[in-house]
């Protein structure tokens, strides 16, 4: 029982750390948006957003890249991200 409670608590703590990391990444995006980064800004902000999405998918949604269905989602999302990145640097 003690071990089960202990493990559950560690799950909670892990998720809390993930949440904190995601909030920090959002804050980083806001800070960077306030700086004069010129044409690099949209690219950097999109990359940070992509990292956030990946972390949410892995840690919160329990999606494994090796799953067949996940591969479809990753493929389409990757394509949309690639097109978006091309359009912001164009």
């Amino acid at each position: 029982m003690y071990s089960k409670n202990n493990s559950t608590t560690s799950v909670y703590l892990n998720q809390l750390f993930v949440w904190f990391g995601l909030v920090i990444l959002s804050g980083l995006s806001v800070v960077l948006a306030g700086l004069d980064l010129g044409k690099a800004l949209p690219f950097i902000v999109l990359v940070i957003a992509a990292v956030q999405v990946y972390v949410i998918a892995r840690a919160f949604m329990n999606i494994r890249p090796s799953d067949k269905i996940a591969k479809v989602f990753i493929g389409i999302s990757g394509l949309i991200l690639a097109v978006s990145l091309l359009l912001v640097v164009a």
Partner: peptide, 9 residues
């Protein structure tokens, strides 16, 4: 997260 990054930032 994406809406925020795209439209606001």
């Amino acid at each position: 997260v994406i809406i925020f990054s795209v439209f606001y930032l």
